[in-house]
Design a protein around this nucleic acid. Sequence first.
DNA 1: ACCTGAACACCGTTCAAGT
DNA 2: ACCTGAACACCGTTCAAGT
Lengths: 196, 196
Amino acid sequence: MRSRPYHHGDLPAELLAHAEKMLREKGAYELSLRAIARDIGVSPAAPSRHFKNKQALLDTVALKGFERLAAATEDARRGAGVTFAERLVAAARAYLRFALANRALFDLMCQAYTGERTSPELCEVARRLPGQLVALVADGQSGGEVRTGAPERVALPVFAALHGYARLAVSGLVPAELTELGLEDVIESILRGCRP
Amino acid sequence: MRSRPYHHGDLPAELLAHAEKMLREKGAYELSLRAIARDIGVSPAAPSRHFKNKQALLDTVALKGFERLAAATEDARRGAGVTFAERLVAAARAYLRFALANRALFDLMCQAYTGERTSPELCEVARRLPGQLVALVADGQSGGEVRTGAPERVALPVFAALHGYARLAVSGLVPAELTELGLEDVIESILRGCRP
DNA sequence: ACCTGAACACCGTTCAAGT
DNA sequence: ACCTGAACACCGTTCAAGT
């Protein structure tokens, strides 16, 4: 039996995986680079070869989060019916489900949108989410299901309501037993706002 | 000229003031208890007499933020016209203005809603904001301007859209030159959703 | 190329001791 | 009652040196 190899198989991937696990189990405040390195069995200096600092690691975690979220909502929309309402409901449920199932990660993603320090890649993937809604709205318009107007401008209030509701739910401002009901109210309100 | 007195005039207040200043100038990530103590000219151990830990200080900063925000939106609503739409617009503008003028504080407040660790006082004051909207909606209902339904359920989508839009704007997902226009679209959408 | 070991400058928090 | 000084256990980051 040989001891731990000097070179790791894929340290970057393992760092990301452990960071996300720690985020889930301990929360963002407890997440430390040294603790991750310790868990993996690597020196405190090792991560710096792959991520220039802690923020860079977190940005990458957020990036992967956005990719998963975008994939989840896209899949949901594709798996839904053909009407605008059906597709919106499916995407909205997937968005909320992701937020609630990945609270700390969702928080990280939301503050990662923020600020000048954010990487271009992160910005780009973050914009896929409103982008999906814009496409959905444009589709709904061409079918006569959604009122006219620049799709971006019609979609923005939709995204604001959805995202805002997810934030409130994650924050605990909406009691857990009412999140489903509340989402229905939010969707109903959105659909009223979109009617031709 | 006598040297710095051993006892401070009002250390708790000065700690809070400096914490907020630091939040504004450096951001949440840079904010350290030791740096605040240094700035004030007090030992690193001094804050612990007044706040049991860093989180307790931040919670109090967030609490004061909620009070200021609630006061700002209440004032705006009172200073506005008598129709539901006028009052909603005034409150919404005040909410967005506060968020943009106090980005780091607003971020802190939003994550401070979160979680089990949050103090009861913080929860209570955080609920004043949706509470205002519930009252506004109830008023609008009695005047026949807003559709019927439990006021809490009608107000929730309104709050979600408003809060969500503020978050998007603070995050930089809405370009600065479009925030005003976007808010108008959001308000219009909300009003459509509220119509009888 | 990839990682270690040791070091540096910084944290938050605690606790005896001073005023 | 309020604060200091010193200590403790922890950080993130850097850099020569090892493999």
